[in-house]
Design a protein around this nucleic acid. Structure first.
Lengths: 196, 196, 196, 196
DNA sequence: TATGAATGAGTCTTCATTCAT
DNA sequence: AATGAATGAAGACTCATTCAT
């Protein structure tokens, strides 16, 4: 019997390598070879575990999305206050960046590609909606439905906008940290503006 | 019988075709053929006028940036009030979208690619800085330097964030219009918050 | 303007090279490279003119089928007697072999593949039916409908069988010529057996 | 706990799976995986028992040839009349088809490939010669040497031709049965034509 | 005895570039 | 000024083979 239980190991290995490769070379510049070389594996293994390049790309996006999701869930409990919860949401959206700078660049590449790829678009949509509804439900506990919706929309845009500008200007971690602070401050200002 | 003065005509023809092709197929899916077919010209002409695909891509980005620039300059005069000027800046950033829906998708594709392409990154940077300094200099006439810097940063992020979310959710013109309104409103709130 | 009118030249060049390659290496062993090398052209040209390997394969089969068809039509006129016509049919089916030994081997490769390829199967069917109906209509002028049908079926099988055994035993031209004589003799014996 | 005596079981399992796979997918479409999956075994076992794909292919052809051989030998005894023996030969050549429709398609695939594979060609040749000499020796008991040779050649061609046309037109069992009848009738007519 | 993970050479296809006209 | 035929490097994918277990 050959080594067993390698599947999860290999899958993670390849997904990590994909994130690195896309961060470094872009989605366009990322090839089956650039990935497999980074993973220290052969090119054939990608088809073996993911059915092809497209499958690996999609698995990578799903991986990033769950990372974001669990990153938030890890902090929030039943007793978390709405204000605290909102802060955690902001943090989670900037957090991945802080552990791995790769992630952000990769993320934006996928976003851009999502305009031309139905499956990526679906996944991107799920993520975008989740950010919005996480924000909206927390705001709701502090203000009227209408105001909560508005606050969610505005803070989602502010988070994405700050994040986007930080990515594109190739910011370092401190600048990301600064952007995170601005986002939190903006959320607080929305609470004091619309809060009961 | 060589036609003279065809150069500017051909260049514009090809740039327009590039915008359309990138909007429709993505930067990845855009080929020398998809462009030349849309332009109703042969593929060889791209090398002839732009030296190659890369040259055409860069020319297209420059074209989009000047469009944005002139779109703003057309409205602003010496007597425009700072408040009005700020509104024009917001409008200009949402304006291209309203004339041609293509443009937005194309723009985001270029942005993502700019992370991996020095020349595109340089151009993207110029644009990002210009938005910031346009905003900052207008805010400056209404508030302290420090506040103006902050307001410029925040409103730039808000504009980009609203715009990004609108693009990615494949919004229609009405939704873009709505985003534009939110951006303007936010700029106004920054003025009343920090304004003397 | 580039060289014009190259298309028919290139197409024929590539089809000829395909016949040679399949004869030499088999359908399995024939690659885009083995063909383009034989044709003295680049591999990309195949996609350019035939859309891909499959397109070239099908064009080659169609070419062989028309060769067979025109080979027969060239000899038959309105005044050809039924007997003579039958001899021409037999000859045509052995003729291609005599001009180009390649053809036979290629043909059998395509036949075998036709079991697993709908388009090839369709083409092979057209050919098989044409041989049968050519034979049947000529026999019909010499005997009853029922006898003509039987004679057509039997002589078609005899032609194919002799031809197949000659191909598989890697016969030379003399042996093919001998097989052709046996086929003709068999057709004559059918005429004298069932003829009025 | 190694099971002993598995070898013949596995070999037959794999040969049967090969016949099925080639019938279904063609020789070209048959892979080590398509075979091992059909056999319910792993891909590695093919190398283990046959040294590789080629070895399994050849073993399969040999299996088919012995089937044909034993199919004939089972019926013929010392007291079988030449006429009856000839009928058995025809029957044997159509018989495999009737038990397993797969076989015919597989057979033709191997035949075509035999033009480009020395070992398959050798095997095919043995088979072709055996059909001929079986026929010739039986005919010899009923006619002169020369006539017997001719009759053997013609009836071998007729058998193969009828069989080939039946395979390629994807005939059902009834049509195969009909072809068998025609072949027998032809053999009888040769006997009455040349028989003393 | 049997597995199936892993490899990497080989195939088809795409596409930016070149260049004769 | 403009064409598009032709190239060939580079990409994704397939698959027979190997081998540790």
């Amino acid at each position: 019997m050959p080594k067993v239980g390698m599947e999860p190991v290999r899958r993670e290995q390849l997904i990590k390598a994909t994130i690195e490769s896309v961060a470094e070379l872009g989605l366009q510049g990322t090839t089956i070879n650039s990935i497999s070389k980074k993973a220290g594996l052969s090119s054939g293994i990608i088809s073996h575990y993911f059915g092809g390049k497209q499958g690996l790309i999609e698995a990578t996006v799903r991986y990033l999305l769950s990372s974001l999701k669990y990153s938030l869930m890890a902090q929030v409990t039943d007793t978390t206050s709405p204000q605290q919860r909102l802060m955690y949401i902001v943090e989670a959206n900037f957090a991945l960046v802080q552990q791995r700078n790769d992630t952000t660049r990769t993320w934006l590449s996928f976003w851009a590609q999502s305009m031309h790829d139905p499956e990526l678009h679906r996944l991107q949509n799920v993520n975008s909606k989740r950010l919005y509804s996480n924000l909206a439900s927390s705001f709701r506990q502090l203000m009227s439905v209408e105001h909560a919706k508005l606050a969610a929309q505005l803070s989602a845009a502010m988070i994405d906008g700050l994040w986007l500008r930080a990515v594109l200007s190739q910011s370092d971690k401190d600048q990301f940290k600064h952007s995170e602070q601005l986002a939190k401050q903006y959320v607080r200002s929305l609470i004091s503006q619309y809060g009961a």
